[in-house]
């Protein structure tokens, strides 16, 4: 059994890609491979000149540290650190980070910086997670069901934050979701089913996430 088979995909600098797929379609496995959390059993994954296929644990760690930003479905903030400190946790190991305050400002949380995760709503927590992911100025921002645990109104705010981050930092952004509505904010939409790419199209215009609803 292979979670993914015969997937051939290029991601280009600065674009915002939405990957659509039902659960079990292989989208998470693809994201894990792109993010350097997992290596494929066969095939080739390259980030610029770095071959992720043969990378060892230490190389994958360096790749994640220097090039990749992650946003998770359940935020995965460190509960013992404040919003600002959660961001600093990443900026202090990054090579050319933006200031933590700037990152939080970008997601509209300038006034909640010294709150602990337990004191923030789900949407706010996810926006802290986005600030944490973009603060290191990653080349690739990978978001796994970023609105999966949120209601529609809050989800829209989170997507708006991702959109802003993409436009202002020029980070290649990949959002995976089973939520078809989100596809409208993308430059490019890729559909996965049963471990293969079953469709791919470009939106002529990216729709403002604030206008989305589901």
């Amino acid at each position: 059994m292979h979670a993914l088979r015969g997937v051939n995909l290029d991601l280009f600098a600065g674009e915002l890609v939405v990957m659509l797929g039902a659960s079990g379609s292989g989208k998470s496995t693809l994201l894990n491979i792109l993010g350097g959390l997992d290596v494929p059993t066969s095939g080739e994954v390259k980030y610029q000149d770095i071959d992720l296929t043969k990378a060892r644990d230490r190389d994958l760690t360096r790749y994640r540290r220097n090039y990749v930003g992650f946003v998770f479905q359940f935020y995965n903030l460190i509960p013992s650190l404040t919003a600002r400190e959660n961001v600093i946790a990443v900026t202090e190991i990054a090579r050319n980070p933006m200031s933590p305050e700037a990152a939080l400002d970008l997601v509209g949380l300038a006034n909640r910086m010294d709150h602990f995760p337990a004191q923030l709503s789900g949407g706010e927590q996810q926006r802290v997670a986005i600030a944490r992911a973009i603060a290191k100025r990653p080349k690739v921002l990978l978001c796994d069901e970023p609105t999966g645990a949120l209601d529609s109104a809050t989800g829209v705010l989170v997507l708006a934050a991702l959109d802003t981050a993409n436009q202002e930092t020029g980070t290649t952004t990949v959002i995976i979701t089973h939520n078809v509505s989100i596809a409208q904010m993308a430059d490019r939409v890729i559909t996965l089913s049963d471990g293969t790419i079953s469709g791919e199209y470009r939106n002529s215009t990216r729709q403002d996430p604030r206008t989305l609803s589901w």
């Binding site: 959390l37 760690t61 540290r65 903030l77 460190i78 944490r132």
Partner: peptide, 16 residues
Amino acid sequence: GRDLASLRVLGYSHNE
């Protein structure tokens, strides 16, 4: 474990 794994994903090394 969850916090530590999250940090690992964010680019922290095993020793860190």
